[in-house]
């Protein structure tokens, strides 16, 4: 196994990790600020992807498609927040799980109703496709590099937003003490809607960006949603830094495990058995990682200690 393969796989892991971060960031903000488990976050991801595919099909512009994805997801997010989620803040986790599960059903079937059961395709534009040569002679798809950069830029922007701006201060204050910031004159319900819209837009963006390398179909959001939950639980719920580190850990474990565990097993097993047990272990690896982190630190790597 060559260095080139290893570097390629590390880049793939980074790329999937950074896309997971876009999902996880919204989820962790929403949970941190409002104490809400939003299972329907995967549906916002799906809405983003579908909006992007539809707009790209109509206009042919990838940039417009991305904007449409963020706008559609944010609008859906705001609607959902105002109509449904707002009534759930005071209830326990059980009701939230049920209500947002109900939202998944509605969104998935609604999308199937509008777009049909067949997957749509979102093409990578010409100026972003094709391989580039990295130092050391490694050929790597340009689009995936762009994804990594976009993700890192968003992460940096989000970091600045949280630590440097007035909204960020309010969000952090909201995580610590809701009643207090309401008493200080911040319109808490507007803040909640804003955070929800922000999280939704990030999910929509992730859906559109990933939709261009995979197919756009109903149910695409749920696997990512579960991974994003794993990420925020590893990182500690409510922590953006935790979400970033958790996302990279999960992305790298998932990608590298899938490639290298079967290879590793081949060193001491016969090839076919090694292939199957290696890939079995690889698909379980991130959940084992999460279990291990939670047993070591029950509130995640950067979560608030009780």
């Amino acid at each position: 196994m060559s260095t080139i393969l290893i570097i390629e796989q590390i880049l793939n892991g980074l790329q999937s990790g950074i896309m997971l971060f876009l999902m996880a960031a919204g989820l962790t903000l929403i949970f941190g600020v409002m104490g809400l488990i939003n299972l329907a976050h995967g549906s916002l991801y799906m809405i983003g992807a579908f909006a992007a595919a539809a707009v790209a099909g109509l206009t042919g512009s990838f940039v417009l498609a991305l904007i449409a994805a963020m706008a559609a997801a944010a609008i859906a997010g705001v609607l959902v927040e105002m109509l449904v989620i707002r009534r759930l803040y005071a209830t326990d986790h059980l009701d939230q799980v049920l209500a947002t599960f109900a939202l998944i059903l509605i969104f998935s079937e609604g999308t199937r109703w509008v777009f049909g059961s067949f997957p749509l395709f979102l093409d990578i534009p010409d100026y972003l496709s094709g391989p580039v040569t990295l130092p050391g002679g490694i050929q790597y798809p340009f689009y995936r590099l762009v994804l990594i950069c976009v993700g890192l830029l968003v992460a940096a922007g989000l970091g600045l937003l949280i630590t440097r701006t007035r909204i960020g201060i309010q969000i952090r204050a909201g995580e610590n003490d809701r009643e207090m910031i309401a008493a200080l004159g911040v319109d808490i319900s507007k803040l909640y809607t804003l955070v929800f819209a922000l999280g939704a837009a990030l999910a929509g963006l992730a859906g559109a960006l990933v939709g261009a390398i995979q197919s756009v179909q109903v149910g695409m959001g749920e696997p990512v949603l579960i991974l994003a939950f794993v990420v925020i639980v590893i990182g500690g719920i409510g922590s953006i830094k935790g979400a970033l580190i958790g996302a990279l850990l999960v992305g790298l474990t998932d990608t590298l495990g899938g490639v290298f565990l079967p290879q590793l097993f081949k060193l001491f097993m016969e090839p076919s058995a090694a292939q199957s047990s290696g890939s079995a272990l690889a698909s379980m690896a991130i959940y084992i990682l999460m279990g291990a982190v939670l047993i070591w630190r029950p509130t995640g790597l950067f979560g608030a200690r009780p």
Binding site: I37, H93, I226, F229, V233, Y287, M290, G291, P298, T299
Partner: peptide, 20 residues
């Protein structure tokens, strides 16, 4: 060892482990 939302998530993770 965990509680609240972490408990929901860790049980979910164990379920997924068996699934995969």
């Amino acid at each position: 060892r965990t509680a609240g939302v972490y408990f929901i998530m860790i049980t979910l993770a164990f379920g997924q482990m068996f699934y995969f």
